[in-house]
Amino acid sequence: MSSNIIRPYGDTTGDGMVQMSFTLPLPHDKRAEGAALQLARKMGLDPALLVHAKAMGPDFTFFVVYGSSTHLVNLDEVHVVEREYPLLSAKDANLAIRKQLRRKLVVVGACIGTDAHTVGIDAILNIKGFAGEKGLEYYREIRVVNLGAQVLVPDLVARARAEKADAVLVSQVVTQKDAHIHNTTQMSAAFREAYPAGQVPILIAGGPRFEEGSEGALGVDRIFGRGTTPGEVASYLVHEMTQRRGR
């Protein structure tokens, strides 16, 4: 068995079985069911098994389809970003900051644009934390300035300068019309404009819908996605700080 080629697993190795559900804008009849099967086949399910179809109002039908996917996954062609820094405990993170900076690391955080969802930034910054980990406020050697929601980019830049921020965290939950991307690029551009080259604080964007590896396009140093814990952010900050001081 070649270990680098895999298929989905239903109840037997190699059966390729997957399930999916979708809605078609058709009234529920034989034709709609045929259309659902055609879609499933075009998506690579063969054979496809239509296990459930239900009318949702006069104009839509909901389907559940099971089937064997004809596609193969080649693990040699899978490329992901692995975490390139070690996870530190709060104690070790504090120690590293004290040793290297001999002062507190200053983190300024905000939700920018019209985004009022502070749940992400609060989970990382507030002492309350997230997933059983205390937030950055809990770290003795980190000073947190949480500006809250709907902060304007110029205000964020001004505050970051006033606080001599080492790092700036922005959270973007709302993604309608790509607001998270516009806001983040606007933010990073504003920081590059306001600071001399090489002295821009560590810029971090967090949110559930950022694309992994899009740091370059957004002009930030790091993106954190869904499920990120405060410890991961603190560890990254220590790592990046070490890298920058070494330069």
Binding site: K54, M56, F62
Partner: peptide
């Protein structure tokens, strides 16, 4: 917390 609800999500 995943997507704005699909038509089918509301029905379910």
């Amino acid at each position: 917390a995943v997507v704005t609800p699909f038509l089918s999500d509301r029905d379910l």
